[in-house]
Each structure stands twice: as C-alpha cells, then as structure tokens.
Design a protein around this nucleic acid. Structure first.
Length: 402
RNA sequence: GGGUAGGUAGCGAAGCGGUCAAACGCAACAGACUGUAAAUCUGUCGACAAUUGUCUUCGGAGGUUCGAAUCCUUCCCUACCCA
C-alpha cells in the first residue's frame, strides 16, 4: 500500500534543490498507486571512491525515504566506467580499476550504504552488465543521438575549456553512458547531487530517444566539507567518513565553521522538522554558545553511524581532552623493547611525527609532553617506563608498553 | 603535420647562472588566545646531523660552467592557435 500522492510529495520534496519536472513525479506517484507497483529509484555510485562520507549521506537519505514509501532503491555501481578510468582530476590520470577492485569497492559501498538504507530491499547492479555488451555499431547509434554542443553545455566542460585543462575524449561519453544506465534499468527517478544534474538529465534524453518513459531528476544540495568552503570530498581532505572512528566523526564535526551547523543538521542527520526549527532558533540567539549546538550535531552523527551509548562516551572524551585538557582514557599503546631511547627517535618510531626533523621542531614549539610535563630538550634521552604517557600536539597520545 | 605557451615542493604560483631548500597564497602542523579540533594572532612547513654542516629535490636523460631550477642538446607530457 502506498501513501497518498500528497503525503509522498511532501516527504520527497523536503530538502531537495530541484525536482525536474515536478508534475511528472506527481503523475508517476499516481500511476504507481493505481497499478500498485513501486517506482524504480536510481542512484549511481562511483566505485573508484568506495569510502562514503556524510556528503554522500544526503542523497542516500533521500533514497531511504523513497524506500520507506515502498519504492525500489536501485544502486548502480559504475564498474564499467570505473574500469575504463575516469581522469576527472586535473593532472593525474585516475588509476584504472580492475574487475576485482570494482567488485570489492561495490560491495564495500553497499555495506556502508547499509548504515542508511535498508539494503535487504535494495537492488545493486553493475553497469558492465549492459555496457560491456554494447558493440561499436550500437554505441555509434547511441552517440549519434547527441551533439557535441549538447554535451559541452555542461559547466564542468565549459570551465575546463576556458581554463585550458584537458578533457579526455571518453569523458564526453560519460554522461551518455550514465544516461544509458537509466534506460537499461527503467529508472523512474534518478537521485543525485546538484553536480549530477547534467548527467541525470542526459538520462532523460537517452530514455526519450529510445522511446521509454523519462525519469524524473531530483537533485540534492552538496554540503561543504569541514573546511567550510569546498564541497566535501575525500580528495579535498575535508570529509567526514561514515566509517571513521566515533571520535573522528565527532572531532571533525566540531571543526566545521559555525555557519555550517544548521545545514549539517538539516541534511545529514535524522532530526525532525520540529527539532530543526528549535535548533535554528538556538543558533540565532547570540547568547547561546554555538559550540553546544555543534556538540549536539556531533552527537547526532555518532549516534546515527554507531549508537547512542557510543555517542555519549565520545562526547565525554571530547570534553575531557579538549575542554578540561585531561588525558583520554583510551590511548594507543606503543610497545618498546629497549630501556632508553632518544625522544626524537621514539616520536618518529611511534609515528607521532613524520621525521626526526619534524620531531625536533615539535619539541622546539613546545608540543611534546611526557606525563603532562612539557619537554624542551630535543636531545633528551628517556628512560622508558611502562605506562609513560606521551602527548604531541593537542590530540596525539601514546602510552608506553614494556 | 606547423606554430605558440608551458611542465617548480600537498595544491596554486614566483624565480630565468651564484645571496635557492627555492618568494608568495592556500592547505597542513604547532603555540597563544578562546564558550569550540570555530574565528583570530604568531610560528613551523625536503631529509639527516647538529648550534650556522651534509645530502636529495625544480618533467626525464645527457652536456656547458668553478657553480644550473635558471644556458645548450635530446626525449616525454599538457594547453592554445593553424592545417
């Protein structure tokens, strides 16, 4: 049984940037109710970057809503395109994946998405299934339905032409291949970030050219990463991974700029609309410390990807280390076999610093302490004792184990 | 195929024979401060050794020179214009 069209629309519309076109979605819902068949909701996944971060969760959350409304979630792993290798980086050609890698990554993607989706009711397909069967004749037929101008309209390409960065020929085919995926699985709706708008619209074109019903494209906002300016991505090193340690999820959340707090709540957590309104009010009142709201955000995220208990513990640890500046409970051990060692050698060996030179600089800057006592002698030789606690910077700790 | 402009540290970008381990910006790291791993300010930011030293870096390989990121040869790569 499906909910009413209005109910479904209200839920789906929430948080989206665009629904193209909205009236077609209404019609699709109507038809689905009348025929009592679920809609196919497509989401493409990139198997070259199998680590999901909370930026991906925005779109996955929307997909989950569709699931909850009784529709089919279809995850498409772009293994075929992954095997060809997408050199979308500026200079580096992306390493081409082997067949095995795409499978492993695909599975890992699926597993991670399971933290958000109901995977037992989701379908995963690999696009090699149909793309590898296209022969040149069919490919040419497919390509003949598009013009260079149409493909170059895409912002990315336009900008790259302007910036004089290379565009590999096959990159031009990507949108068409992705569009072909929609045709192959009979997608009714395709979800994606706003950056995928163009690609997803091409899906509509492909379906139309081949005489199929066109999909509705729903775009979701992209969120900025922890640096607050660039879109969250692993390559920008500003992402919060959903499989990261609770303390990293929490800590990284605490490092986002204050202005992003609301957006994160809205797009990456499951808090209700009422709570959202309350959070907004809290943030607008300058008497409140944004830190406290941010801390709640971190709590919500840890709770989402772990559980409430872990979230409580994480918050306690954070307070202890960063607000009260105490030593955390859980410190990694470093096993030593010798009785004494130079401090700089120890720090390097234990990976608390990258090199001895860096270790020296850290000591010079007063970043190193042993059992709470700041060390300033870079030639210091330490007599190692079991249980000694070393601290480097604000968050690197190590306990000696003999 | 012809022409032009380029390839510099994590990225962007100066330098165009010695004073270059290489300006500057961003990122990163550290310190101070702070209601936060926000913001702001200060510092560090190739490696090794130590108190002004040594070694490896400026697309690759050779060469010229007392001395090269800087000049020459050659190769590889990229963008743009022309065909």
């Amino acid at each position: 049984m499906f909910a009413s069209v209005k109910e479904q629309m209200d839920i789906i519309r929430e948080g989206t940037v665009e629904i193209i076109p909205e009236d077609e979605l209404v019609k699709k819902f109507e038809k689905s109710i009348k025929k009592n068949t679920p809609l196919n909701i497509k989401l493409g996944c990139d198997p070259s970057r199998p680590d999901l971060h909370i930026g991906h969760s925005v779109v996955l959350n929307k997909l989950r809503q569709f699931q909850e409304l009784g529709h089919n979630a279809i995850l498409i792993v772009g293994d075929y395109t992954g095997m060809i290798g997408d050199p979308s980086g500026k200079k580096k050609t992306r390493p081409q994946l082997t067949f095995e890698e795409t499978r492993i990554n695909g599975e890992s993607y699926f597993e991670q998405a399971g933290k958000i989706l109901d995977v037992s009711r989701a379908r995963v397909v690999y696009n090699s299934e149909w793309l590898s069967k296209l022969d040149l004749k069919e490919l040419i037929n497919l390509l003949s339905k598009f013009t260079v101008q149409r493909i170059l309209e895409r912002d990315d390409f336009t900008n790259r032409l302007k910036d004089q960065t290379e565009i590999a020929l096959h990159e031009l085919l990507y949108p068409i291949m992705q569009g072909y995926d929609s045709y192959a699985i009979d997608a009714d709706v395709e979800l994606g970030g706003t950056d995928q708008k163009f690609n997803n619209l091409v899906g509509r074109d492909v379906q139309k050219r081949f005489g199929k019903e066109q999909q509705v494209v729903i775009t979701m906002p992209l969120i900025e990463g922890t640096d607050g300016s660039e879109k969250m991505s692993k390559s920008m090193d500003n992402a919060i991974g959903i499989t990261e340690d609770p303390k990293d999820i929490f800590g990284k959340t605490m490092s986002i700029p204050d202005i992003l707090i609301y957006k994160y709540f809205q797009l990456t957590t499951k808090v209700s609309l009422e709570e959202l309104a309350e959070i907004k009010k809290t943030l607008e009142n300058s008497e409140n410390n944004p830190r406290d709201t941010k801390r709640r955000l971190g709590y919500e995220l840890v709770k989402l990807y772990y559980d409430a208990e872990t979230a409580e513990k994480t918050i306690e640890e954070f307070d202890k280390v960063f607000i009260k500046k105490e030593t955390p409970d859980d410190i990694p051990d470093h096993e030593v076999k010798v009785d004494s060692i130079k401090l700089i050698d120890l720090l390097t060996e234990a990976k608390l610093s990258e090199s001895k030179t860096v270790a020296r600089k850290l000591i010079e800057q007063g970043a190193v302490s042993i059992d709470g006592k700041k060390q300033s002698d870079m030639n210091l030789v330490i007599d190692l004792k079991d249980g000694m606690v070393f601290k480097v910077g604000k968050r690197k700790f190590m306990k000696i184990k003999k």
